[in-house]
């Protein structure tokens, strides 16, 4: 029921062991408090988290899919940007 009365919210959950909140989905709710409750009921029923963020979807500025090639293609052949050309000294061990 997407309507001005039931705006969309994005939900982020931090799991027990996780360091950062991760996006898990979205939902409709009338306001912040209801969005938090709905997020709890929808996304933490199986003990998935210890902290919830809800953010109005309208607050998120997204990149334009039509500009995908301009935005992301130039990075695809810059293999030198990956730190795989360094020789790691023996003493450092596993990195």
């Amino acid at each position: 029921m997407a309507s001005p009365r039931f705006p969309l919210w994005e939900v982020f959950i931090r799991s027990r062991t996780g360091l950062a909140h991760r996006h898990v989905g979205s939902l409709h709710a009338v306001d912040v408090a209801s969005a938090l409750e709905a997020a709890r009921d929808l996304f933490t029923r199986r003990n998935e988290g210890v902290s919830i963020w809800v953010v109005p979807s309208a607050s998120i500025t997204a990149s334009d899919p039509a500009e995908k090639s301009m935005m992301f293609d130039p990075a695809s052949d810059k293999i030198y940007r990956h730190p795989t050309f360094y020789e790691v000294p023996e003493d450092v061990g596993h990195m």
Binding site: F6, L27, H28, A29, E37, A38, D41, L42, R45
Partner: peptide, 9 residues
């Protein structure tokens, strides 16, 4: 329920 979210709740 009137909303999917409320259905779960």
């Amino acid at each position: 329920a009137p909303l999917l979210e409320e259905e779960m709740a």
